[in-house]
């Protein structure tokens, strides 16, 4: 302790001593995030397999990627995923938050229930729905027992529905988060505006459209941004529920990258996928940032 104390005493320069306190966080963050990220951005121009010789191959990985049928499928699925999350959970969350502001009783109960799946582990949420959507057990077994055989299908193992079923489970877990941030914003809306709307004889929908929604627009745009960004690395639910199957019908970019990286050890190829994800996220951030510069309230 003594030499440390001595050092601190003599760090009279504020700037210097402030760096001293910052050092531990910066060091571990650089080790875990910055250095590997930069390595990845370098390795995406190589054909490294993790242990052999590293050969520079230029843009070959990217050329190969855009020729890869599975990767193209994964990108389309990520776009569908983003579009789904930008619509269905947002609509339900806006509705639930708006309805919640209209009631007093049981409000905390509903808030608790809606938010609850958000604190559950992805593995637990997946177990719940893997069972319910199981080809033999769960809802299939239930529908068969009451004679509704037409409903007794397994959405996770059917090619046409697997992506939507996975997105449903992730959305089921996620939408309560939106409810909570929307309701927080809605409570900051000026009460006088609602009273004025009441005097004008506004309907519920009109109040939502002309008072609530314009007031929570910054929070709404924030939720838009985080959904777009969080949809890029969406992994847990796909990997656990379907691993991208059947026949790549629920493959997404993060899962594709994971298998290239840890099953096939294609370091260069997988790094190229990571680099593209990174570029996309920063393109989105830059887009929102320039909207803000243009005077949009974000």
């Amino acid at each position: 302790m003594a030499p440390f104390h001595f050092l601190m005493r003599h760090l009279s320069n504020r700037e210097l001593s402030s760096w001293f306190f910052l050092a531990p966080v910066i060091l571990i963050h650089m080790l875990v995030v910055a250095i590997p990220s930069i390595s990845s951005l370098a390795l995406c121009f190589t054909d490294w397999n993790g242990f052999g010789k590293i050969n520079f191959v230029g843009f070959d990985n990217f050329i190969e990627l855009f020729d890869d049928r599975v990767f193209k499928k994964a990108i389309i699925h990520n776009l569908i995923w983003t579009a789904l999350f930008l619509t269905i959970p947002i609509v339900f969350a806006l509705m639930a938050a708006f309805l919640l502001t209209g009631i007093r009783r049981f409000q905390m109960f509903y808030r608790f229930v809606f938010f609850f799946p958000y604190i559950l582990a992805s593995i637990v949420n997946c177990l719940i729905w893997k069972y319910l959507f199981h080809p033999i057990h769960g809802l299939t077994s239930f529908f068969n027992s009451i004679g509704w055989e037409s409903l007794a299908t397994s959405p996770l193992t059917t090619k046409e529905t697997s992506l939507y079923a996975v997105a449903f489970v992730d959305g089921w877990h996620f939408w309560g988060f939106l409810v909570v941030i929307y309701i927080t914003a809605m409570y900051q809306v000026d009460e006088d505006l609602y009273e004025a709307a009441d005097i004008e004889g506004a309907s519920k929908w009109q109040k939502f459209k002309y008072v609530t929604f314009p007031s929570i627009r910054p929070m709404f745009l924030f939720s838009f941004l985080i959904i777009i960004i969080w949809s890029v690395p969406a992994f847990d639910y796909v990997y656990i529920l379907t691993s991208g199957g059947p026949a790549y019908s629920s493959e997404v970019v993060a899962n594709f990258m994971y298998f290239e990286a840890f099953r096939n050890m294609n370091v260069g190829y997988a790094s190229a996928v990571g680099a593209l994800m990174f570029i996309y996220v920063f393109f989105v951030l830059g887009f929102f940032w320039s909207l803000r510069k243009l005077g949009w309230e974000i």
Binding site: S37, L41, P233, M257, A261, F262, V267, F278, F282
Partner: peptide, 16 residues
């Protein structure tokens, strides 16, 4: 750092 997708750095991190 918060905005970087884990997929960018997880593989080099694994090797390190």
């Amino acid at each position: 750092g918060l905005s970087i997708p884990a997929q960018l750095f997880i593989l080099p991190l694994f090797i390190i």
